[in-house]
Design a binder for these strands. Structure first.
Length: 425
RNA sequence: GUGAAAGUAGCUCAGCUGGUCAGAGCACUGGAUUGUGGAUCCAGGGGUCGCGGGUUCAAAUCCCGUCUUUCACCCCA
C-alpha cells in the first residue's frame, strides 16, 4: 500500500535539505552576531497554553491530541508561549536584558496555500527586560541584518513600521470609542490588501460619520510622521507615540538601516497583544504575504503568570522567505549535499582492499572520505568523485607497492605522487 | 468552511476534435573507455495515463462521481 505524504507537509530530499539548512544557518549566524542566545522547548505543550491569549478560531487551527493520561496537548503553532513559560520559571536568575532566539518547527492546521503550509520553520528573536525603544530598533536591525546578508536590498523589501499606541491614541482622538478599537484594527489591518472602495464601504459600516471616517483614511495614507497631528489633532498621547517612532527612526538611521524602512500607519498586526511598536517586512511589488513581522508586547510574560516585564520580538517563517529568495535568485545554486575531502579510487580491482583500508584510516583522522562499492573502471570512479563533490581524489595503483599513491586535485586536475604516511598524518 | 484550476515515467511536460497515444527532454543504470572526472554518442530499466463508474466496437482523450494537489477567499499567532 502506498501512503501519501500528509497535506501541508514537505519532504526534504538532500538538495531541499541543503537549502533549508542554508536558510536556517543564516538565521542562526545573524542571531549570534547580534548577541542573541539560542533556546528551544518541547514540540508539544498543554493545549491550554495556546488558548490562553488566543480565541477559539485559533484553537481550531491547532493540531491537538489527548495522551493516555487524558492530558489535552497540542503541537506548537508558535514558540512565544513556550518562551514566556521558560523565562517565567527562571526570571529572577536570568541576567537582563534577555536576548534569545530560536528556530522552532511549528504546526498549524490551516488550509495550505502559497507561502503557507501546515508544518514550517520560523525564526524568532526576542528581547525581554528593556522598555526602551532601543530594543525595538535592535530587533528590526537584526531582521534587516539577515535579509541584507542574503542579498535583499531596500528595493526588494520594505520594513513597514507603526505603533499601536499611535494607532490607539489617533483613533481615540478622532473620536472612536475605545471599545470599538479592536474591531476597527481588524479592518485597518486589511487596508493594503483590499480595494479602496471596499475598504471605505466597510469602514462606513463601522464609522457612519463621514468626518471621522475621512480622517481615518487620511491617517492610513500618511507616510510622513509629522503630518499625523494635522490629521488626527494634537494630543499628549499622540505626542508620546510619535516621539517613540521618531526616536526609533533616529536609532535605525544611526544603525544604517533606515533606508529599508517606512512609517506605515496601516500596519496593525493580527492579535491583541501588541502594545507598542509593530512592524512587518514585505516584498516590494509582489503578491506575497508578509515575510515576517513583530513588535512590542509588554504584557506577555505577565499573561503567562510571570512578572510585568517589557518584551519585544520578531518572527519570520521559512515559506514566504523561501519563495522570495527563489524569485530573486538569491539561493546559491552550488549548495552541496556532500562535502568530501577525499574520494579513493583504484586503478585496478586488486587494490580494492587497499581502498577500503585507506578510506577507513582517513575517516579516523577526521577526513571526509568515500569510495565506490563496485571497483569499476577508473573513469567511472572519477566521475563518482566529482558527482559527490570530492575536493581530491586518491588513486591507488601500482605505486602502492612502494607505499606511494596519486592525489588528484579535482578542481585543477593537478596530480601529485605522495607517501601514504604523509597523507595519514 | 467557500470558490476556481489541474492530475500522463523520479522531475518538467507533449498527446486530448475518441482508432500505432504509452511518448519527449532531464534524471537514473549500462556501454563506447581495463590508469584519469565534468562532454558526447549508443543502449536499457521505469507508467493501473489519480481512483471508481458510464457512453462506445474502441477511452489517457467524452460524461458523472470521488480523492489529491495548487491558487484564491476566511484566517494569519
Amino acid at each position: 500500500m502506498k501512503i501519501p505524504p500528509v497535506k501541508g507537509t514537505r519532504d526534504f530530499y538532500p538538495l531541499d535539505m541543503a537549502r533549508r539548512n542554508w536558510i536556517i544557518d543564516g538565521w542562526k549566524r545573524v542571531s549570534l552576531r547580534n548577541g542573541f542566545e539560542e533556546y528551544d522547548g518541547p514540540i508539544f505543550e498543554y493545549l491550554k497554553m495556546f488558548q490562553l491569549k488566543s480565541g477559539d478560531e485559533i484553537a481550531e487551527q491547532l493540531f491537538s491530541l489527548t495522551d493516555r493520561g487524558g492530558r489535552e496537548l497540542a503541537l506548537r503553532p508558535e514558540i512565544t508561549p513556550t518562551m514566556a513559560r521558560m523565562m517565567n520559571q527562571q526570571i529572577n536568575s536570568l541576567p537582563k536584558p534577555i536576548k534569545w532566539f530560536s528556530v522552532p518547527r511549528l504546526f498549524r492546521a490551516e488550509r495550505p496555500q502559497r507561502g503557507r503550509l501546515r508544518e514550517f520553520f520560523q525564526w524568532n528573536v526576542d528581547i525581554i527586560g528593556v522598555d526602551d525603544v532601543l530594543a525595538d530598533a535592535e530587533i528590526i536591525f537584526t531582521t534587516i541584518d539577515y535579509l541584507s546578508s542574503v542579498g535583499l536590498t531596500p528595493r526588494d523589501i520594505r520594513v513597514k513600521i507603526s505603533n499601536r499606541k499611535l494607532l490607539a491614541s489617533a483613533l481615540t482622538n478622532i473620536g472612536i470609542p475605545e471599545k470599538q478599537l479592536y474591531s476597527l484594527y481588524a479592518l485597518l489591518d486589511k487596508y493594503n490588501r483590499i480595494p479602496p472602495d471596499v475598504f471605505e464601504k466597510t469602514l462606513a459600516e463601522q464609522v457612519p460619520d463621514s468626518a471621522p471616517a475621512k480622517k481615518i483614511v487620511d491617517f492610513m495614507n500618511t507616510t510622513t510622521l509629522s503630518e499625523v497631528p494635522e490629521i488626527v489633532g494634537k494630543d499628549p498621547e499622540v505626542d508620546t507615540a510619535m516621539q517613540e517612532l521618531a526616536s526609533l527612526k533616529d536609532l535605525l538611521e544611526q544603525m544604517g538601516v533606515w533606508q529599508f524602512c517606512d512609517f506605515y500607519p496601516s500596519i496593525v498586526r493580527g492579535l491583541a497583544y501588541y502594545t507598542g511598536v509593530v512592524f512587518e517586512v514585505h516584498a516590494v511589488g509582489g503578491e506575497l504575504r508578509a515575510v515576517g513581522g513583530g513588535g512590542r508586547y509588554d504584557n506577555l510574560l505577565q499573561d503567562f503568570g510571570g512578572p510585568s516585564i517589557a518584551a519585544t520580538g520578531m518572527g519570520m517563517g521559512d515559506c514566504v522567505l523561501g519563495i522570495l529568495l527563489e524569485e530573486r535568485n538569491l539561493i546559491p545554486e552550488d549548495l552541496s549535499t556532500q562535502q568530501l575531502d577525499y574520494f579513493i579510487a583504484s586503478a585496478d580491482k586488486k587494490y580494492f582492499p587497499k581502498v577500503i583500508e585507506i578510506t577507513a584510516k582517513l575517516r579516523r583522522t577526521g577526513k571526509a572520505a568515500n569510495f565506490a562499492y563496485k571497483p569499476t573502471g577508473l573513469s567511472k570512479q572519477l566521475k563518482q568523485a566529482s558527482v559527490q563533490g570530492a575536493k581530491k581524489c586518491i588513486i591507488i595503483g601500482s605505486e602502492i607497492e612502494s607505499g606511494k599513491l596519486v592525489v588528484k586535485d579535482m578542481a585543477t586536475g593537478e596530480q601529485k605522487t605522495t607517501e601514504l604516511d604523509n597523507l595519514l598524518k
